Simulated scan of single mutants.
Amino acid sequence: MAGEAAAAGGAARFPQVREWITLVVRVLLAAILGIAGYAKFSEAEGLQKVAVSSYRILPQSMVGPVALGLPVLEMALAALILIGFATRTMAICVGVLFVVFIAGIISVWARGLTIDCGCFGGGGQVAKGQTHYLREIFRDLGFLVLAAWLMVFPRGRVALDRWLGL
């Protein structure tokens, strides 16, 4: 009987715990995106373009806009996730972004290219044996899990959504 009461109390507290976990996940994901975006944004335009063109996926006419726009997108998503605005929608956008990143890394790996992913700045050609594709894929899968948490449990503490009644 005492065990049942304790279990019932734990279940009643889970939504509160879940809201705190959601806050922590928002902060972590915002930090990841913010750091990655700022690292790219603060590099010279030429280096940004080298990182994007190294993937050999986009037509040359798209390299510049993606190289300049991606860091801005990452930082904007970081800010919106951090303040908890349209959390589920932003988490879906972030999830799609990580799926694109993972697909890009897999594509480069499958084609035998040797590049630094440029995920946190840098990027471009590297010497054979200096790639870390599997580690990068698993890292991004971990980030995708964080985004998935926010897709499923978007309601969290200290969130603009909560104050707006969304």
Score class of each variant (00 low, 15 high):
Ala86Ser: 07
Leu82Phe: 13
Asp140Gly: 02
Val25Asn: 00
Ser42Asp: 15
Ala30Asp: 10
Tyr133His: 00
Lys49Thr: 14
Met90Ser: 10
Trp109Gly: 04
Cys93Asp: 06
Ser54Ile: 13
Leu141His: 06
Ala7Leu: 09
Glu4Asp: 12
Val50Thr: 15
Val24Phe: 11
Ala31Gly: 14
Phe98Val: 05
Arg56Ser: 14
Val27Ile: 14
Glu4Ile: 06
Ile57Pro: 06
Leu77Tyr: 14
Leu58Asn: 03
Trp149Thr: 04
Met75Asn: 07
Leu47His: 15
Leu144Trp: 09
Ser42Gln: 14
Gly9Ala: 12
Val72Asn: 10
Glu45Cys: 04
Leu68Val: 14
Ala2Phe: 10
Gly121Ser: 09
Gly95Asn: 04
Phe98Gln: 04
Met75Trp: 04
Gly46Thr: 05
Ile57Asp: 06
Trp109Pro: 02
Arg111Gly: 09
Val94Ala: 10
Ser53Ile: 05
Pro15Leu: 10
Ile115Gly: 00
Ile115Phe: 02
Leu33His: 05
Arg139Ala: 02
Gly9Trp: 06
Val96His: 00
Gly123Asn: 04
Val108Cys: 03
Val99Lys: 01
Val100Ser: 08
Ile57Met: 15
Arg111Lys: 11
Ala12Cys: 06
Val100Ala: 12
Val108Thr: 12
Val145Trp: 02
Val108Asn: 03
Gly37Cys: 14
Gly104Gln: 05
Pro65Trp: 07
Ala110Ile: 05
Val52Asn: 11
Arg13Ile: 01
Val52Met: 14
Val145Ile: 10
Val145Ala: 11
Phe120Asp: 01
Phe120Ala: 06
Ile115Tyr: 02
Gly64Val: 06
Phe120Glu: 01
Ala127Gly: 13
Val63Ile: 12
Val27Gly: 14
Ile102Asn: 02
Ile115Ser: 03
Trp149Glu: 08
Leu144Ser: 15
Leu82Asp: 03
Phe138Thr: 01
Val152Asp: 09
Leu164Gln: 11
Gly142Pro: 00
Pro59Gln: 09
Leu28Met: 15
Gly142Asn: 00
Trp149Ala: 07
Glu45Asp: 15
Ala12Ile: 06
Gly156Gln: 01
Leu70Thr: 01
Ala147Gln: 07
Gly9Tyr: 06
Arg13Cys: 06
Ala2Thr: 12
Cys117Gln: 01
Lys49Cys: 08
Gly95Asp: 03
Leu97Cys: 08
Val108Pro: 05
Met151Leu: 09
Thr89Trp: 12
Ala30Ile: 05
Val63Phe: 03
Leu82Val: 04
Ala31Trp: 15
Leu150Thr: 10
Ala30Glu: 07
Phe143Val: 13
Ala12Leu: 12
Gly64Phe: 12
Leu28Pro: 13
Phe153Glu: 07
Thr114His: 09
